[in-house]
Structures are given as C-alpha cells and as structure tokens.
Design a protein around this nucleic acid. Structure first.
Lengths: 243, 243
DNA sequence: GACGCTATGTGTGCTAGCTTACAGACAGAG
DNA sequence: CTCTGTCTGTAAGCTAGCACACATAGCGTC
C-alpha cells in the first residue's frame, strides 16, 4: 500500500514556516531539526514546561484534556498549518492539556528560546504566530459548541474533515477506539456513526484505516462547526503579513 | 436592597489595568472612558471589527457563540480580571463570537489603536495581555471538556463560581432563562438543578436574584473544571511582569 | 386590589448516548 | 495454518436531558 519511499519532509511544508518573512526564516531555519512522530507519542503532558516547539509537516497532533477519571476530550487539532507549543510565546510556559500524535508523520523542532527571541524582536513574526493562535482559539470555541449541541454522527464528520485538511491523501490511519478518545465518547458510538457513513458510501474502512470516498457528502452531513472554523482559519491566514 | 450609592468605578478595579507597568498606565489611562453596561447589552457581534476594547470593573461579559438555529453556548466569561476584544491585538480584528453583558455594571473603554500601539511597542504590556489570553484559552478548553462530560448540575455550579469570582458580593442578578442560554441547555434543566441546590441550602433565589449561601459546598458539588481554570488563571496572573 | 407580565415549577413522553456484555473477524506471529 | 491479540459489530437496559404543554407565583402598574 505504501507508494515507495516518501520524499523527505521540507521546512516549507509547514504553512506557518512558509509564511514567515525571509529574515525570520534565515534566523530560525538553521536551528530547526527534523523529528519523527509515531502514532500515540505524547509530546507534552499537562503542566510540562516546553523546551522546544514543533512545526508539523505531515503529522497531526491533538491537544487533549485528560480528566481525573481518565476520560478525555480533544480541545483542538494541529497540523501543517500551525505549531505545537503556543504557551512558549503566550507566556505561560505550560498548558493544562496533553499533546498527543494523532497521525504519524514528521515535524520540525525549534528550541523555545529561539522562538521567543524572534517573537519578541520581530513584529511580523509575532503577528503570524498570534493570528495562528486566534485560529486555534476559534477551533477550541467551536469544539465547545459542538460538544454541547451536536450528535456523534455530526462530530465524527467534523473530526474527519479537520483531519483530512491536514493530510495529503484521503486515507486516515486511525482506529475507532482512538477517535472515540478524541471525541470523548464511547467506542461503540463511533462504530455506529462510522457504520452509517459507510452505508451511505461516504467512507470505507477496515481495521484502523479509513478512506474518505465522498468528501462533499461528508461536508453536507457535518454540522456548521467545521465550516465556521475553516472559514475563520482561512481568513486569518489570508491577512497580509505586513499589516 | 441597594446599599445607598455605589462608589464610582476606578480604573484600578480592573486587575489587568492595575498590573500594567506605570509607564503603560500613563500612556493609556488618559484615553480611557468609563462606560455603563446594562444587562443584555451586546458589545459586539460575530464578525464585527472592534473600534475599542473594554476593561470591566464590576460588570461581567459572556462570550457566546450563536448557532444558525439560534441556540447558543457560552465560550468563556470575562470580568475585572481581563478585557473584551483580544482580537484587536491577536490580529484577527474580529471573532466568531458575540459579547453580551451577563451582569450589569461598569467598564472602561479604550480605542483599539491605542491598545495596539502599546501592545506592539512595549513587551511588558504585551506579556500581560498574552498571559491573560492564555488564561482565556484555558477557560475555553475547559468549557469544551465540561460540555462533553458533566451534568447540568455540575455545570451550574461551575457557572455560579465563575460569576461569583468576578463580583463583590454573593448576589447574582440573573434569571434561570439567561443561565440556560449561557450554558446552552433548556430553562427547565436549570430550574431543576437550581432547585436541588436550594434544597441543599447552598443557594437561595427569588425571581431573578440568586444568593449564594454556602460557597464551600458549591465548590464540592462542582466538577473539577472550575478548579482547573481557577488554578491556571491564578498561576498566569502571578508571574512577575518583568520576566 | 385586579390585571398582566415575567419567572419559576411540574409533568408526560421521547431519544441519544451511556454501561455492560459478548460475538465475530481480520492480521500478524510463530 | 493455527493462535492470539486487536479491532469491529450488536444487543438489552438505563438515564440525562430533550421537546412540548401547562400550572403557579412574584411583582409592578394602573
């Protein structure tokens, strides 16, 4: 199934890095190191101070809150449009969530101090990072709304679309169990919802591999939450850098 | 019931303003104007670009997402610990939520451009604003978790505690209908939950006025969400400014 | 001091999602 | 090719919260 050898990940595969002004790229790129993220790897736990931040290229990372009971809920998801570790420049050093790899792949790491320096010194860099952070905030807000008002079916659609947007193809390597953890629902609930989608011919899946057949239909079945986040994220990325 | 005349609101009643370095205070305070927020006033709608930001003193403002169907859900709440309008310095200019006054009172307004200048020019000011923003993010994340996993009873407790922390006394002027809107649940659900709390002697209420009798018990009945947000907010406020 | 508005109480179904339990089915290892 | 662990399917019973409907009760007003 693997299409030969993957091309090595490039720094510019990350949209945030690609959008940086040339000067910032020159400052930062020499300090970036490629890293591999296996599925399930925990990048940091709640309360951990961060030594470095990560810019995903073809990996996806979930920010998850884990309750005392062990139950969990996804707060937001980060792919090649962003970075892991906003608390480094937001000033808190740590957050209350866990960062866990949801889809294996690559990323680039950068020591926190390098990012902080650049962030404080250069306003263009800062604006990019903060606008990305606002997009992340929008995603969190919509997650709260979706958790309150929408069915598992709808939420599964949202989740699949968010993941698809951060990957190349139409294949997701992901068990229903893991999706259930992310959504904070039972595994059986996901089985049921996924079964419906398969019957409708929207997706096909076998043992931990989900293929999206009809993305358009998926968007129709989804609640408004996906579109709201997508639209706002696009808007925030589209701003001219030299505002 | 009103204890004579209220003292006029002071700039330093807002903790964020009070924490500003003296220089920033000198720059900004001359441009601040006191404003009155009546209950229910909409400060901005989803997508509105903001002319000014607001620093509440004794008012409380909810950030609410309103769905196409008209149903709503509170994303977070802002009182004298913060400001309304983070998108002004986060770079997006607008957000997808509505800001609506949840508890009448006062605030100070500041033209957006003044804030932006100060934010971009002075790193101490920036750090304060960004750390507050991170606290806001934490609150949103926990709202998402709470919406997913906790009962109306628990959420009501969380909501009451969040409101209490932003007010002087133990009285809330607030109907069950409005609470239901904030939590994104039915009014009857709130009636039931509030009835239980009253029977337990934790609160007393009559027609739009809620009095908290036993705050300690309220915290016990609450889910962990309140404590998580409270602790993280305190941590983020406690940082030395000149980090 | 009767009227009417708004806030609150209650009650009867209904449904989504939960808990628990177990059965089938695919895939890699030996 | 069988074994075993991991995924996925299904089912019975339960509960929280829903939608809808209507009853009561403060409180200001005229």
């Amino acid at each position: 199934m693997k299409a030969g050898k993957k091309p090595p990940p490039a720094l510019l595969d990350n949209k945030l890095l690609a959008a940086l002004p040339a000067e910032a790229q020159q400052h930062l790129f020499p300090h970036m190191k490629p890293v591999d993220f296996p599925l399930g790897k925990v990048l940091y736990e709640s309360g951990d101070a961060l030594n470095c931040v990560y810019f995903p290229t073809d990996s996806i990372v979930s920010l998850l809150y884990v309750m005392e009971s062990g139950a969990s809920a996804e707060i937001s998801v980060v792919g090649n449009e962003g970075l892991i570790g906003i608390s480094v420049f937001m000033g808190g050093e740590s957050t209350t969530s866990r960062a866990i790899v949801q889809s294996a792949g690559s990323a680039f790491s950068l020591p926190s101090q390098r990012l902080r320096n650049e962030f404080n010194g250069f306003s263009e860099m800062r604006m990019l990072m903060l606008r990305y952070t606002q997009a992340l905030i929008t995603q969190m807000a919509q997650t709260a709304v979706c958790n309150r008002h929408h069915s598992i079916d709808q939420q599964l659609c949202r989740w699949l679309l968010l993941s698809l947007d951060r990957l190349d193809g139409t294949n997701l390597i992901m068990t229903q169990e893991l999706i259930a953890n992310m959504l904070g629902v039972r595994r059986e609930g996901v089985t049921e919802a996924a079964g419906k989608l398969q019957q409708l011919g929207v997706i096909e899946y076998q043992r931990g591999r989900i293929q999206v057949i009809n993305r358009h239909r998926l968007e129709e079945l989804c609640c408004e939450c996906y579109a709201v986040v997508k639209k706002e994220t696009d808007r925030l990325q589209a701003f001219p850098v030299a505002a």
